[in-house]
Design a protein around this nucleic acid. Structure first.
Lengths: 205, 205
DNA sequence: CACTTGTGTCAACAAGTGTTGGCCTACACT
DNA sequence: AGTGTAGGCCAACACTTGTTGACACAAGTG
């Protein structure tokens, strides 16, 4: 249905995209040059322009990413934190696109916008599905994003030694309860305590 | 002692530095050009070179920042989380140097290195002073960094709407307990529970 | 005064950037 | 077969970047 006749240039397209992801992830948007990407893919820089229009088009194509968030309604309420932590860590470990997007977002407005879109269209709905009050979902999801992106930043971009060396399971063990509280808990309460006894100061317009 | 004869060019130097901080904070390292900075300061680009050697020297000077962390041994053990959260938020709100450094760190290796140095020389000792086992300090401090930097990233750089609109006090109310657990708690336990009943999976050394 | 030193301006360089148009080759279709 | 077209490469443009050197003015010092 969606697939059309396979073109002869599909291999080239894929090679460009793979090289672009690698470069964008390693160098960020501005320092990843089209020439360098083309060289990595062993093709001419012109091809990049032909297939992706311009550098921003290439970045847009190369930073397309699906968080593949699990359906949180299907997991036990008290496990969503650990589940999220594990999922994000796995996702980050085996897809350099995530790092490319994060590095880009720091300096490139288009990349930042894309992250915001991902937040709104993927993370927010997933969190909303398993948080108590729907009106609080945006704030709670944003807190989740802050911890997840922060951990990724320190571990994969800034490479702060202690968190780089930390075992993945330990990172998950620490982040899990944090995310759990952000999704289902209240500010001053631990999730295992059950329902919040206090209206949380989260503005839900 | 440290001060020498006040030079006639001190005003220029300061103007350059102020403009540089602003540009680096707004655009990141690569997109903040020396020409633009010089234009903001209403001086010639050559002056930048004369006084700071090169672009990296300028960035080094412009991104010099003191976290001004409070002495955590002087605050009640159960308040360190909230204290840290408030301090960092305040710090970030009124000093664009922090944002400059964060934006730079995403793409510029020198900036990233500087953040690592700040972590090791400022945050780590502060956390170590009030965490149970000194061997765990690096891991705990890194977790603190991940949440603090992540929140700053989402709020001041990526500008993810819900956390941008959130009141500062609410952010503090949410981050406080998280930081508290990272500093004094155990992975699966809330800080208010007191001592950990379980050796935490945090590798010392 | 002369003279050294600091301060600022101008023009220009060398390198690298994204991007464009022209040209050649090789495949696909009739 | 021949022919149209997509795939690929080369050279080059226009522009921006960090950086340099030469030159003019002002200030402080003997």
């Amino acid at each position: 249905m969606t697939q059309s006749k396979p073109r002869r240039s599909d291999a080239t397209r894929a090679a460009i995209l793979a090289a672009a992801r690698e470069r964008f992830a390693a160098d960020g948007y501005e320092r990843a040059t089209i020439r360098a990407i083309a060289a990595d893919a062993s093709i001419d820089p012109t091809m990049v322009m032909r297939y992706y229009g311009n550098k921003e088009g290439l970045f847009t194509a190369a930073s397309e990413v699906d968080l593949r968030l699990p359906d949180l309604t299907a997991v036990p309420a008290q496990d969503v934190g650990a589940r999220l932590a594990r999922h994000f860590l796995d996702r980050w470990e085996d897809d350099e696109t995530m790092a490319a997007l994060l590095r880009g977002g720091a300096t490139n407005e288009r990349a930042a916008q894309r992250i915001r879109e991902m937040f709104a269209s993927q993370l927010l709905p997933a969190v909303a599905a398993s948080c108590p009050d729907p009106a609080q979902a945006p704030g709670r999801a944003a807190l989740v994003a802050s911890q997840v992106l922060g951990a990724a930043l320190c571990r994969y971009v800034l490479r702060i030694p202690p968190i780089v060396e930390m075992a993945a399971d330990d990172v998950i063990a620490w982040l899990g309860p944090t995310l759990q509280r952000y999704v289902t808990g209240s500010p001053e309460q631990h999730p295992s305590h059950g329902q919040p006894r206090d209206p949380s100061p989260m503005g839900g317009r």
